[in-house]
Design a protein around this nucleic acid. Structure first.
Lengths: 236, 236
DNA sequence: TATTTATAGTGTATTATTGACACAATTAAA
DNA sequence: TTTAATTGTGTCAATAATACACTATAAATA
């Protein structure tokens, strides 16, 4: 057995960007820290990787802890590793990107962590480099939603086309044409008409669809080109 | 000042996927380890993050060490963090993705590291989880080259359209139509005709272009859709 | 119960983009 | 000077994207 005695060990943090959608705005799940340092300030939900824990398991643990949810959409976003990013101690943070169905979260767990759902455009100042992390996550959401059918992860199992359109309009912060959106969406073949109608509408009830989970995997690239041209990211 | 006394510190490795293109094949710069563990086996070039070093600086240091090059195209790819990925000790590895102009590397530095350029399809078995890292990098290369004009990073400053086409054919492992490729490429407005002709051609000499670096930044999404449909990645 | 208001759902004509395909031009080697 | 290999360009048909307007439904209200 060998080891690497000369190299230094470093604290490895995990921070989670948790997006939700309330039907109108994209929301972020943020916590108001009740521990030092930076007690009382807003931050992303995070924690440290444990010695005997896989990295992805660490992210799942932290996400479960705050939301009570398992099997949610998570992917690695980026590692933040500037020497002085955490004033307390050198800490390298792996940022995870999670999409959840906002109705499904465990409100009690959220409350006990001093956490809140906050609209993206009303987010407070965040500690350390967390604002950079959020900006990176927004960029990634725009990217990914243009290429792949991940928007569904933010909606309930049964959803209408207008609901999905409102989500895309929130993601790209731009109005979309209802007729073209609907045509393009249905042409992906990823939606199954459930035959039901939306009950919480105050006027004409919209048809409810669900995702075709088999085709979802086969046609993961079906959304290639759902981003308005003007929104295509400038770099990286 | 605060610190985090209860959390464990972990060795943080950096591994680099280094791609080159010799005009025909995509190549990987790999090293034959002359140190333990796994002495004599093939691996990616790597090292450990230093206590007083930014993460990206660590990657640059390792890349410079092997290639003698600065200012090359580098981006984070993914973190590999399974508990037992390195049998010697718990090590979390941040993998970086680099594209270099193969002619520019420092052959002496490569030799002294016991490294070689190896065609992608002839790569040997690699240590640890490095094969997974390479597969992830190939997927990323295909993705990125379809969306953004990064292929140029693998070519010399002056290049011809047929050269670029051969690169894309190597990336997607599929033949492309010369006429359609050329039309699409020129329509991006990213190429400047240098007026010169390729001298190393054995038949008709091709026009040499260079990248319009100003428009490159403005139109970083100009390549959106350069991937053959059949090659669009299955997931992630 | 008829009208109003808000939202859902669909069709078409125009334009832009893609894909398939063929021929002429250049250069070096035979 | 002929041959072989490769570069460069044009056209037509199919497909996809965009812009735009009317009808249908459901609840609230007059």
């Amino acid at each position: 057995m060998y080891s690497y005695p000369l190299s230094s060990r470093i604290l490895l943090a995990i921070d989670c960007i948790i997006f939700g959608f309330d039907g109108k705005d994209i929301k972020l799940l943020l916590i108001k820290r009740n521990f030092e340092p930076e007690l009382g300030k807003w931050s992303l939900m995070g924690g440290f990787l444990k010695e005997e824990e896989d990295l992805e398991a660490g992210a799942s643990r932290i996400l479960y802890d705050l939301t009570g949810l398992k099997d949610i959409y998570v992917e690695q976003l980026e590692v933040f590793g500037k020497v002085n990013r955490d004033p307390a101690e050198r800490t390298v943070s792996v940022v995870f990107f999670a999409l959840i169905q906002i109705e499904e979260h465990d409100a009690e767990a959220v409350r006990s962590h001093n956490a809140s759902w906050i609209s993206l455009d009303k987010r407070p100042q965040l500690i350390f480099d967390h604002e950079q992390m959020v900006m990176r996550a927004i960029e990634h959401l725009r990217y990914k939603a243009a290429l792949h059918p991940i928007g569904f992860e933010l909606l309930p199992e049964y959803f209408s086309i207008p609901q999905l359109q409102k989500l895309y309009e929130a993601i790209y912060n731009t109005p979309l044409d209802r007729r073209n959106f609907s045509r393009k969406l249905l042409s992906t073949g990823l939606l199954i008409d459930t035959g039901h109608k939306n009950s919480n509408s105050t006027t004409k009830k919209a048809t409810l669809y669900k995702l075709d989970t088999v085709r979802y995997k086969e046609k993961f690239h079906a959304f290639w080109n759902f981003m308005p041209d003007s929104m295509k990211p400038a770099q990286s």
